[in-house]
Amino acid sequence: MNTAAAAGTWRLGDLEVNRVGYGAMRLTGNGMRGNSDGTPIDRAAAVGLLHSAFEQGVDHIDTAAFYFSPLRSANELVNRALSAWSGDVVVATKVGPGREPSGEWLTMARPDQLRGQVEENLRQLGRDHLDVVNLRRNGPDTASVAEHFGALAELRRAGLIRHLGLSNVRPEHVTEALAIAPVVCVQNSYALDWRRADETGLVDLCRELGIAFVPFFAISGLRREASADQRHDARVRSVARAHGATPAQVRLAWTLHRGPHVLAIPGTRDPAHLAENIAAGALRLSAEELALLDTPAEDAAGS
């Protein structure tokens, strides 16, 4: 059985993790924008799924207090799973945006409100400190991250946070934040068909600085929150057939091939898909296959 260790490791500050992790958002039955993905998973099944991930070598989880639906909270499910698990698992969460208990999204939190968001994550996860907290930039109203990141740096000095990261940012935000405190990871939307982080130079900047780049929506194609099988073009399918793999596995493998600093946090509620996602870390693509995948879709279609 392939494990998450097959893709190698990376260090988030002093925390070494396998490059293939798990994103907890889909456990709630709601997407990031509140789009329903169906009936939430049974709590016992969710804990079992997370334990299965841990058994297969997953040792870091992405979550957030704002990942919840009327019936489920991602942090609550992660807390339950970790309380019955003896191994070490790094938990990364996010602050910045907020949601009312009704699910309605709020505007970006003020810097002085971030402590409350951090403490809410601590309560929900049942911890006395958070391993990694990503400041998620929420829209054009937060052009600068300095004031918000500075507030989180104070909480890091107070011992509530171990390491800091950024999410949904541009290269200049990374530079701005680094002048305040160390940054261990940057989490942005990035996929084979969604390469804005390449266009801005963010992926390469993170490599140069020794910062983990953590894509979300890595297997979703252009529709981002769509399920992984919505947009698989001929080049992905051909590479998948050559390896006896699924198109989703090829997309994940392509992402991991972007550099040893690139992590993966695919989420699923299906145990079979979980195993497939983890196995993608062992998939090795040739230079020719990577060149084919890097061909723009419209060029490949006309060849």
Rank of each mutant, 00 (worst) to 15 (best):
Y190S: 07
H261E: 12
H51K: 06
H257S: 06
N35D: 15
I180D: 03
L122M: 14
R170E: 09
A279G: 13
E288C: 06
F217H: 07
L209Y: 04
S83C: 06
D294T: 05
L12G: 06
G48T: 01
S102K: 08
S286Q: 14
S83M: 05
P140A: 13
R26Q: 04
G244P: 01
R162T: 15
R11L: 02
H51W: 03
R11M: 00
T200M: 10
E119S: 13
I219W: 00
W254I: 02
P111Q: 02
F149Q: 07
R196G: 10
V118D: 09
A253L: 02
R26M: 02
A264K: 00
T93S: 06
A6T: 10
H273R: 15
T246W: 00
G29I: 05
L27M: 10
G201Y: 01
R157C: 00
A242M: 09
L209S: 10
A153L: 06
D59G: 04
N35P: 05
G38M: 13
S167G: 03
F68A: 12
H173E: 10
L152K: 07
L290G: 06
P101C: 04
E104I: 05
T28H: 08
D62H: 10
R231N: 11
V239K: 09
A264L: 14
S52M: 08
I161K: 07
A46C: 05
R237N: 02
H148M: 04
V47T: 12
S73P: 01
T200P: 13
C185G: 01
S102G: 14
L209A: 08
V186D: 06
Q187H: 15
A179L: 04
H163P: 09
C206W: 02
S167V: 05
A218K: 03
S189K: 05
R11Q: 09
V132I: 15
W85P: 01
T93D: 04
I265R: 05
N277A: 13
P171W: 11
A287R: 12
T39Y: 03
V186F: 11
L292C: 00
L222K: 14
A297C: 02
T107M: 12
E289A: 08
P101G: 11
N2T: 10
R195A: 15
R170G: 01
L130S: 07
W105T: 14
E55T: 15
L15S: 13
E288M: 03
G87A: 09
L202P: 01
N75D: 15
R123M: 13
L178N: 05
R115E: 15
T200A: 09
V132W: 09
W105M: 09
Q249Y: 02
M25T: 08
A64I: 00
D141K: 11
A24Y: 01
L285S: 13
E225V: 11
E55S: 14
G259A: 07
G210E: 03
S238Q: 11
A92H: 01
D37S: 14
D131E: 13
L114D: 03
L49W: 02
D299C: 02
A280G: 14
A297S: 11
C185F: 02
Q113D: 14
L283T: 05
N35K: 14
